[in-house]
Amino acid sequence: MTTLFISDLHLDPSRPQITELFLRLLRNEAQQAQSLFILGDLFEAWIGDDAPGAIGTAVARGLSACARAGTEIGFIRGNRDFLLDASYARSCGMRLLPDPCVVTLTGIPTLLLHGDLLCTDDLAYQRFRAGSRTAAWRESFLARPVAEREAFARQARAESQRHQQGVDAQITDANPQAVLDMLRLYGVPRMIHGHTHRPAVHELPDGDRRYVLGDWYTQGSVLRIDGSGWNLQQL
């Protein structure tokens, strides 16, 4: 049986073709798979389970149909959808996973994470991440009216784009030492993550390996694990 990994779809009304590509994956290949893991940033922005919007509603229908077909679906929150919670996950038939977490794939213990924790050189982002993951920040934000949350999300996206353009690309990539430290902390030889939008398979010391999933801005990216091996491919 096949296990599929995807991340960084950034589903948004401005890219309907990407939403349809994902829904087509759910209707076809994903229903034949044993498991589907989504490693964060499924949506361009998620302002709360009480405001899924048309895309969130369509995605929930597609994921729940996939789950009813027998596919196990796991989800790790990303930096764009860290507010996605148990209510929406239940409507999708998917299980929320901690970031990071370890699963065994083809007999190999493997660390799964969104990937932003590895970007330790991006100090401004790490400060925002730490502050926005507190219970107090979450409660305060979700108490705001939907329109206010939508405005905040638009502003946050614009600031993120300016930040990405204004810093060296190496700063927003995974720090090599952070990768090694994370693998040693969990005592595993393999890692799968997204976030950086730099799809690749990295050979590491001691035969360890790091798989980086690609984004879905113009095409799909999927890691397929089956009897033929671990294959990072485009859709």
Rank of each mutant, 00 (worst) to 15 (best):
S132W: 08
R68G: 12
V59K: 08
L118N: 07
I47M: 10
E72V: 08
A124F: 02
D49K: 12
D122N: 01
R27C: 14
G40A: 05
G48C: 10
H10P: 07
T19V: 15
F5G: 03
D121M: 06
D99M: 03
P52C: 12
L11S: 08
L83D: 10
A89I: 00
A54F: 05
L36V: 07
A124T: 09
Y125K: 00
H114K: 01
I47Y: 11
F37A: 06
R77F: 04
I55F: 06
H114L: 12
S7D: 10
P13Q: 12
G107K: 06
D50T: 03
R61G: 07
D12N: 08
L26M: 12
L26P: 04
L63R: 09
P16E: 14
T134M: 02
D41C: 12
G70Y: 07
L96H: 03
A86R: 12
F22H: 07
L83V: 05
A136E: 14
L105R: 01
L123A: 12
R61Q: 15
G93D: 10
Q126W: 01
A130V: 06
V59M: 13
G107T: 03
P52N: 11
I108C: 11
P16R: 00
L117Y: 02
A58Y: 08
P109D: 13
Y88K: 00
S35V: 01
R127S: 13
Y125C: 04
A136D: 15
T57Y: 08
A67E: 14
R133V: 02
G131R: 13
R95G: 02
Q32L: 11
G40M: 01
L83E: 09
A69M: 09
P109E: 13
M94L: 15
S91I: 00
Q126E: 11
R15A: 13
R80N: 10
Q31V: 02
L117P: 02
R90P: 02
L96Q: 05
Q31M: 14
A60L: 08
I108R: 14
R27H: 14
C119E: 13
Q126I: 00
L112R: 01
W137T: 08
F128G: 01
I108E: 15
L117K: 06
V103Q: 11
P16H: 06
G70R: 09
A130H: 13
A33M: 12
V103A: 05
Q17D: 15
F75M: 04
L117T: 10
A67L: 11
R24I: 00
P98F: 04
A33V: 03
F22M: 09
A89N: 03
N79L: 08
W46S: 09
T71C: 15
S14N: 12
I76K: 09
A33E: 04
G78H: 01
L117E: 07
Q32E: 14
G107E: 11
R133T: 02
L23S: 04
Q34D: 15
I73G: 06
C92R: 00
W46M: 11
S87H: 14
S35Q: 14
S35N: 09
F82K: 09
R61C: 13
L97R: 00
M94N: 09
A124I: 00
Q126A: 03
E29K: 06
